[in-house]
């Protein structure tokens, strides 16, 4: 039975590894910055800076657990941001509804393109992001679209904290306990077998892309509140930040049964602390990027090789 507790040891390591990285990053920066990162206002700032990424990463867990990707998240945040800015001149709640609606619509299109027409998820969403970036350039004539001044007072931390907690807890409940979440993971673990267990694959995929679009819509709305205006490069590269955050949070790369919702929360926090800490230490742009690259590769190597070993053991055992 030796191989059994070896396997258990590795599984335990894989589960707690994201927590270790979070603690290491948190403590590391606290020491290096002489306690400045622990300052309340700074922590509030870290939360505010990673608020929108938390939303979209949460929704992305559903997609990645089905081994699907959405390369258009950044463009959707940009587009919904512009829509929110334009409509906010009329009235704010309508602006929120418009942003959500546009996000859901684009999500639906993505879902149909991949779920029904069967186009490869990456290519379909990459093309969609190309189209959306083009539309964005036209809508704001490659400049900025300002938001109504009244919208600024929406920018309190309390509101954001509430929205974030409600969204994350809701998503966690759905992912962990609802049959929809379980079906997502089953699709990721084995699509053909999932079909024969009565899972309507196209339906699950469309729902997940719509949910992703909705999250991007909300993120777009709050991004615009934070920056005061939507620009043609708003939300740029959000899809890659999501991917990095989820992997830092310990999410298996091709989804499946091991996917955990918490990897979104932990991953985004690690990324938030990292970005904030490096600026705090006055690191230049390029050293920052190199550090991010090194950490990403190390975490990747660690989790991927060990997870492979566990799976291989499972097959062989």
């Amino acid at each position: 039975m030796k191989s059994n507790n070896k396997k258990k040891g590795m599984e335990l390591f894989i589960n707690i590894f994201p927590f270790i990285s979070l603690i290491v990053v948190f403590v590391g920066f606290a020491l290096l910055s002489g306690g400045r990162t622990l300052d309340i206002t700074n922590c509030r700032k870290i939360f505010e800076q990673s608020f929108t990424l938390l939303l979209v990463a949460g929704a992305a867990v559903f997609l990645l657990s089905q081994n699907c990707l959405d390369m258009s998240v950044g463009a959707v945040i940009g587009m919904t941001g512009v829509v929110a800015a334009l409509v906010s001149k009329i009235n704010i709640p309508l602006a929120f509804a418009a942003a959500l609606g546009v996000g859901v619509l684009i999500g639906l299109i993505n879902g149909i393109l991949h779920g029904v027409l069967g186009i490869n998820a990456m290519i379909a969403t990459l093309a969609m992001s190309f189209i959306l970036r083009g539309l964005l350039l036209i809508v704001c004539k490659s400049g900025t679209v300002g938001i109504a001044v009244k919208m600024y007072d929406l920018d309190q931390v309390g509101l954001k904290m509430a929205v974030c907690v409600v969204f994350l807890v809701g998503a966690w409940l759905f992912f962990q306990f609802h049959s929809y979440g379980k079906q997502c993971r089953a699709v990721g673990a084995g699509e053909t077998a999932a079909v024969q267990s009565g899972i309507h694959i196209a339906f699950i995929k469309i729902i997940s892309y719509v949910f992703m679009g909705a999250a991007a819509g909300i993120a777009g709305f709050f991004t615009v509140i934070r920056t005061g205006a939507a620009m043609y490069n708003t939300g740029n590269m959000a899809e890659f930040d999501i991917l990095i955050a989820l992997i830092l949070g310990g999410m298996p790369i091709n989804g499946g049964a091991d996917s955990k919702f918490r990897s979104a929360v932990i991953g985004v926090l690690i990324l938030g602390i990292l970005n904030n800490g490096m600026v705090l230490l006055g690191l230049d742009t390029y050293p920052q990027l190199i550090t991010k690259g090194i950490i990403f590769i190390l975490v990747l190597a660690m989790t991927f090789t060990i997870r492979n070993k566990i799976n291989r053991d499972k097959k062989m055992a």
Partner: peptide, 13 residues
């Protein structure tokens, strides 16, 4: 490949 999901727990299956 079809009747059972290998990379998933007995409970989930």
């Amino acid at each position: 490949t079809e009747a059972v999901i290998l990379q998933d727990s007995v409970k989930n299956n």
